[in-house]
Amino acid sequence: MTGHQVRALGSAVLIDDSRPIFLQIAERIEGDIIEGTLQEEAQVPSTNAFASFYRINPATAAKGVNRLVDDGILYKQRGIGMFVATGARAALVQRRREQFFDQYVQPLAREARKLGIEPLELAEMIRQSETATVHGGAS
């Protein structure tokens, strides 16, 4: 399930069984930073709040958050809480772009090949989807 599908459910539904939860928590926070839901220098909810919201073990939530601290995406202010670092968004976008080919383009091209969709045809489809409604999907 992609992040977008999960978000469309609009609840604490998360978690695919194939990967550690702490990674998924970290990715959710990253996604929120990239989309601007969490602004740079904004305070991030506490690990207990994450745990309650996603109904997961607080230690697991803490592990996800700490991973982002180690990456320099979040920083801790003792006694106050956790904040989004300046420059976090650009760093995350850069990283996601590097993963984009593997994660999205290759599977797409593979499926297209299977269905006999030519690369040019595929490119045209992508262009069309750009002009089509951007907010489609969630009802």
Binding site: I15, I21, A51, S52, Y54, R55, I56, P58
Partner: peptide, 29 residues
């Protein structure tokens, strides 16, 4: 929900025996 909430505030050792594994899986460390 209350278990996660209260454990978050007052960490302690909890042993949860269950058949309903899917329901509790995400709560376990």
């Amino acid at each position: 929900d209350r278990l996660v909430e209260d454990y978050g505030r007052y960490p302690r050792t909890i042993v949860l025996s269950s058949h309903l594994i899917d329901e509790v899986a995400n709560l376990l460390e």
